[in-house]
Design a protein around this nucleic acid. Sequence first.
DNA 1: AAATTTTTGTAAAAAAGTGTAAAAAATTGC
DNA 2: GCAATTTTTTACACTTTTTTACAAAAATTT
Lengths: 148, 148
Amino acid sequence: MINFIGEYKAKVDDKGRLVFPAAFKAICGESLAKGFVVKKTLFANCLEMYTYESWEKESEAVRSRLNFFNRDDERFWRAYTSSRTLVVPDEKLGRISIPKELLESVGIEKEAVFCGRDFKIEIWAKDSLDATNLSDDDYVALAEKTLG
Amino acid sequence: MINFIGEYKAKVDDKGRLVFPAAFKAICGESLAKGFVVKKTLFANCLEMYTYESWEKESEAVRSRLNFFNRDDERFWRAYTSSRTLVVPDEKLGRISIPKELLESVGIEKEAVFCGRDFKIEIWAKDSLDATNLSDDDYVALAEKTLG
DNA sequence: AAATTTTTGTAAAAAAGTGTAAAAAATTGC
DNA sequence: GCAATTTTTTACACTTTTTTACAAAAATTT
């Protein structure tokens, strides 16, 4: 099981590519060649990135909870599988090319940040990320509410 | 189970590295090569450091209690996994390299102190630590209030 | 089919990170 | 207490990663 830990900045080049951080690359092993699924995060203004393998596992778990003879389930599945892309880091530099619609949807222009979240990686516009951090008090309150 | 005991000073070199104390290194065994997770402490102005193994155990326990289709759970996980880094002491000297954002966030510039806290290690800016120590009277009063 | 746009690939410069060596300081053993 | 060992500090060399710039190939449009 791969755990992504740490935050790494990256610049978007003139063709919309960004280098996947070397530290993450190093722990991926063979998963690297299978690529990653990138999609918009559900609640936050960022993208999320799964190894192909972990995406497969997660999406199967979701699918197993749905009934495709149910209208809403069918609509949910359509939305859930929308606006995704499969990316594979290139050989020499480890760059990934994310469609500009996805980058634009979360406000990524020049500076992006890869954030390790254990089982997934989030990709943020640097400015949005800075604005998103919780205060200590908010975090404690949230922890209490969530786990308390 | 590893218990870290004692306090050790360390200087930050020009590349932001500091040597992990030999006394701690000695009791880590194979855990050393797997590295440590360093993150900002919740209530105090210092960093905390867990063996990778103990971090993994803890974070999996937390994750297992979350539902990522719940908005607050999703926010909590983001905060919980923020401002972390994975460090591995280097072969020859046992130095660890902590991102300057983390060092700066707790005011570490030149002199740091590693403080053993049994299950974890705290890393303080020397000046902050001196200023933080409780007086004997305050400690006694707090003990009475907490456990008495 | 030619020209343009888009995508993908290569190369070199800059920046960041990692490793080596030796001097200084601290610790340990005698 | 002094010598020997280990650890820590300092300084610098080297490697890797990232950035920038540009070239080749593929796809699309005119």
